[in-house]
Design a protein around this nucleic acid. Structure first.
Length: 649
DNA sequence: ATACGATTTTTTTTT
DNA sequence: AAAATCGTAT
């Protein structure tokens, strides 16, 4: 039974602009709906139309919850919704699970022993905290463990709902004896975060779940509010996210779309079962398949289909292209990564000459290091490009420094941030900080305590005065850009100059860019939250005019999800690069799905590139093997690019 | 206790 | 090639 709107024009429009499956999807009325959609089938489009339709039927945007994989996707959906509706869906909650979780937790922080100005710890922050805990106790033994492992074990337990013993047993059997120790550290970690008024990424999801489980009245109020919960990219949700969705069942109508063949986030504990068993879990679930591909030529679709068919654990599914035939994908065998760069540069210019604009061209790769030679080549040729994925702007030391100051101002209990801004001062080391922290953490207003000199290190240290001045100046500013200016002026600029004499100018510009972005926020709190949850939006919002110009897209396959281009190059197709190292069949199949995602970004022209002189492998030159994903393909789904002799061999 | 230089290790992918 | 870690001098 379809949802009903009284707007006949709208009904007409739906019928015209959607195919039969999409139309059913957009208008269906059921407690649960699963859209199983192949790449290029317009699933996001169908989801947007559904949201629009629901609103056209008289439901307020306020009563919709739209969960997407990135905040950028959420922005884009809102924009499309705006175009369909003719008005901006003001109160619509749309965002990632993490950002919606953060929003909820800010509102109800007290239930989880936090204040609403809590900090969000990124991965580096939580690792730093854990590392510190290990050092603090008599935990020498655990220092033997490979670093970063502690954090991943804990995260794995929490996201997959496994015990520490289970995770160790299954994934790190060599460390099984440490289970007790790890449990202890985990508990300490939890209480430290509480003391620091901070959540890590996992907490944003688990806290949401806990809030709804422990406080039925809060849960009910949101269940009543959100009449419709819509989730995109459902194949990449993990167990916790799946449970969050479950909590809305019954009261709300739940509608999810996804494609099991595009599940590429197992390393973040994505749970493919979420989508596979969705129909079983929700009685009365309506399953709608969308297998019509509007994006790619039949040749591209054929190659993608063929590749994915080597995955044994994949539900069989056939895509149908409805575009007119094009050229077969090219497989290009070159000598080295350098020539690969040269080749891609050459081709891009040729495509340009044949009328394809730069924005319609993308180069995709498994991991960011594969693009280094290419970047140099593009610069040399003056081809404008932009990179996505593998961004580390916010990871850079100077940016983290500035953010640490802001975090302290926003949440004065943030131990990790305090440690950073104290130990960056000359003369202050870890031991000095520990001493200081014991009194600092007791202070009712730590920032003012420092400014007023109520807390100070036992012996005179030059850097301390510096810190005091910075905090005094920065804490008296209200606007974000002025706060950043103040802390630069009063001392951080000197530190920057001292630490990075060569790159001072460049790093300063980075900080100025950060400050410029701050202008659009009312206060530190939303600014910091936006930064910790969505770096891409920041990068785009602050791109210079130069960068905004039309450009080629260089992207990891992961960040290319959901996008499409007329011409696509997939580079580094060698064993060890793409697929990277894999341990078992399951990991290999995930790599193959990644390849599938990459291929299906293409509308028309596809180049698959491999090389045999592979000196990128660390530890000296090696003979590169063309990717398994190329070797296994039957020769009739591609053509070999004729490589000239002179320069290319 | 800190700073600085020597040595070692490390490479996915992202909220 | 760059960053984390270690060792030694101040």
């Amino acid at each position: 039974m379809p949802l009903c709107s009284n707007d006949l024009d709208w009904e007409e429009r739906l019928k015209q602009e959607l195919n039969e499956a999409q139309y059913r999807f957009a208008t269906a009325e059921a407690p649960a709906i699963l859209g199983l959609a192949g790449p290029g089938s317009g699933k996001t489009r169908a989801l947007v139309y559904r949201a629009a339709h629901i609103i056209k039927c008289g439901v307020s945007p306020h009563e919709l919850l739209l969960l997407t994989f990135t905040n950028k996707a959420a922005e884009e959906m809102k924009e499309r919704l705006h175009r369909l509706l003719g008005f901006w869906p003001e109160d619509l909650w749309a965002g990632t699970f993490h950002s919606i979780g953060a929003r909820l937790l800010r509102r109800h922080a007290a239930h989880l022993n936090r204040q609403s100005n809590f900090s969000i710890l990124d991965e580096d922050d939580s690792r730093a905290m854990l590392k510190d805990l290990v050092k603090l106790g008599d935990n020498e033994r655990i220092l033997l463990i490979k670093r970063g492992l502690l954090a991943s074990v804990i995260s794995h337990c929490r996201n997959a709902d496994l015990s520490i013993e289970d995770v160790l047993e299954e994934f790190y059997p060599q460390y099984r004896e440490y289970a007790g120790l790890i449990r202890q550290l985990y508990e300490q970690y939890q209480s430290r975060k509480e003391a620091a008024n901070a959540f890590d990424f996992d907490d944003l999801l688990l806290g949401w779940l806990e809030l709804f489980t422990r406080e039925p009245s809060i849960r009910e109020s949101y269940r009543r509010r959100f009449k419709h919960v819509l989730v995109d990219e459902f194949q990449d949700t993990n167990l916790v996210q799946g449970r969050i969705v479950d909590l809305f069942a019954g009261e709300s109508s739940i509608c999810v779309v996804g494609d099991d063949a595009q599940s590429i986030y197992a390393f973040r504990f994505a749970e493919i079962e979420n989508i596979l068993s969705f129909p079983k879990k929700y009685p009365g679930c309506l399953v709608i398949r969308m297998e019509q591909n509007y994006r790619s030529t039949p040749e591209i679709v054929a190659l993608a289909d063929c590749s994915i068919s080597f995955n044994r654990g994949q539900l069989p599914k056939k895509l149908y292209s409805c575009r007119r035939s094009g050229e077969k994908p090219w497989v290009v065998g070159l000598r080295s990564a350098l020539q690969e760069a040269w080749f891609v540069g050459e081709r891009i210019q040729e495509l340009q000459r044949s009328g394809i604009p730069l924005r319609e061209i993308a180069v995709l790769y498994r991991s960011s290091y594969l693009a280094t030679e290419l970047e140099l080549e593009l610069v040399r040729r003056g081809i404008r490009y932009r990179t996505y994925g593998g961004l580390k702007f916010l990871q850079k030391a100077h940016i983290k420094d500035v953010l640490a100051f802001l975090k302290v101002l926003c949440n004065p209990r943030d131990e990790v941030a305090w440690r950073r801004i104290v130990t960056m001062q000359p003369g202050m080391g870890p031991a000095g900080f520990e001493k200081l922290w014991s009194s600092l953490k007791e202070a009712p207003d730590p920032v003012q305590a420092v400014v007023r000199g109520e807390v100070a290190p036992s012996r005179r240290v030059g850097g301390w005065e510096n810190l005091r001045r910075i905090l005094a100046a920065a804490s008296s500013e209200r606007e974000v850009p002025r706060t950043i200016e103040a802390l630069l002026r009063e001392g951080y600029q000197d530190i920057l100059l001292k630490n990075y004499p060569d790159q001072f100018e460049e790093r300063l510009r980075g900080i100025e860019r950060l400050a410029a972005y701050g202008a659009r926020f009312d206060s530190l709190e939303p600014f910091l939250e936006a930064l910790s949850l969505e770096e891409v939006l920041f990068m785009e919002a602050t791109a210079s005019d130069e960068e905004r110009r039309e450009s080629v897209c260089l992207s990891t396959v992961h960040s290319a999800k959901g996008k499409e281009w007329e011409a696509v190059f997939i580079i580094g197709l060698n064993d060890g690069h793409f697929p990277g190292r894999w341990r078992d069949e399951a990991e290999l199949e995930e790599e193959r799905r990644l390849f599938y995602v990459a291929v299906t970004r293409t509308r028309r022209y596809l180049f698959l590139i491999t090389y045999w002189d592979d000196r990128r492998a660390w530890g000296g030159a090696a003979v590169g093997t063309p990717s398994l994903f190329l070797r296994e393909l039957p020769a009739n789904c591609y053509q070999i690019f004729p490589v000239g002799e002179g320069y290319l061999y």
